[in-house]
Design a protein around this nucleic acid. Structure first.
Length: 273
DNA sequence: GCCACTGTTAGCAT
DNA sequence: CATGCTAACAGTGG
């Protein structure tokens, strides 16, 4: 499940091996992933410029100022592969480049991903999608994070809300809450200032460590060069149901919070502390 | 073969 | 408005 660290890893990988040539061919196998029309014509003859990220959105700037925006959904993958490799039934989109063997592929088994194109940087930032998106989890200041936590929602729901703070998904919400010893169902406004500080630092530390490890490969996620990420081996609670807490030895439990499966150590993360 | 599960978002209820 | 819950999406895997 690509969250901020996985998306950041992909962006770095894509930038590292970007072809300098112009797009020579656009293969679209599944039109529904495209939220905007006329994509083929807009991409043809363009070169890829800087690739960046905001929350879980991948922003690919083209040499004429357009932006190709990709959201990977749950199972989306974006990677380079040789032309020799046939597209399989889950590959929805492929870009070929002039006289270059490598192609940029968008593959998405579950088809929840989205691809959109904007005519300019201005069009991108004034789009509904970007306007709705909260501050990036690695950019938000301590002060703004504290303000966010004055709301009375359950802390996990808040961390997962991309309008509130962008980039955190189920894995990193659970790992951050464990690190800060906070129960996911705890009301945000009832968390002590000391723990708010601890949570802010935990979110940043864990996202950074996960990026350094190339992300977490649970099922579909791969880096843009096809390798698995390694952060899943460092998880303290996510996917460790019934195993022993690495901090205190208690049994990790799985419960539903904010409609999502959540993993906690019942001893380290008490609802009333 | 049925159902749980996954992330996100929209829509509805409170 | 704020918040929470559910459905829907599509496919995999138990």
């Amino acid at each position: 499940m690509p969250e901020l660290p996985e998306v950041e890893t992909i962006v770095r990988g894509l930038n590292r091996s970007k072809p300098g040539e112009a797009v020579s061919r656009v293969l679209v196998r599944l039109g529904k992933v495209f939220k905007s029309g006329g994509i083929k014509k807009k991409l043809l003859k363009r070169k890829l410029a800087e690739i960046s990220r905001r929350g879980k959105f991948i922003l690919i700037r083209l040499d004429d100022g357009q932006y190709l925006v990709v959201h990977l959904g749950m199972t989306g993958q974006l990677y380079w592969i040789s032309k020799e490799h046939q597209v399989d039934r889950h590959t929805h989109f492929r870009l070929e480049f002039e006289g270059n063997d490598r192609t940029l592929n968008f593959r998405d088994v579950r088809k929840f991903g989205q691809v959109q194109i904007y005519d300019s940087e201005k069009a991108l930032w004034s789009s509904e999608k970007m306007k709705k998106l909260g501050p990036d989890a690695l950019q938000i200041s301590r002060g703004d994070f504290g303000k966010l936590l004055q709301r009375r929602r359950m802390i996990k729901a808040l961390l997962l809300d991309q309008k509130a703070i962008a980039g955190i998904g189920n894995i990193y919400a659970d790992e951050s809450l464990f690190a800060a010893k906070i129960h996911p169902a705890r009301r945000a406004n009832e968390i002590s200032p000391a723990k708010v500080k601890r949570l802010y630092e935990s979110v940043r530390r864990i996202l950074r460590q996960a990026i350094a490890a190339g992300g977490s490969s649970i099922r579909d996620y791969r880096q843009s060069d096809g390798r698995e990420g390694m952060f899943q081996t460092k998880h303290k609670v996510y996917g460790r149901t019934a195993l022993k807490c690495r901090r205190c030895g208690a049994k990790i439990e799985r419960l539903i919070v904010a409609g999502r499966s959540s993993h906690i150590c019942p001893a380290c993360q008490r609802l009333d502390s």
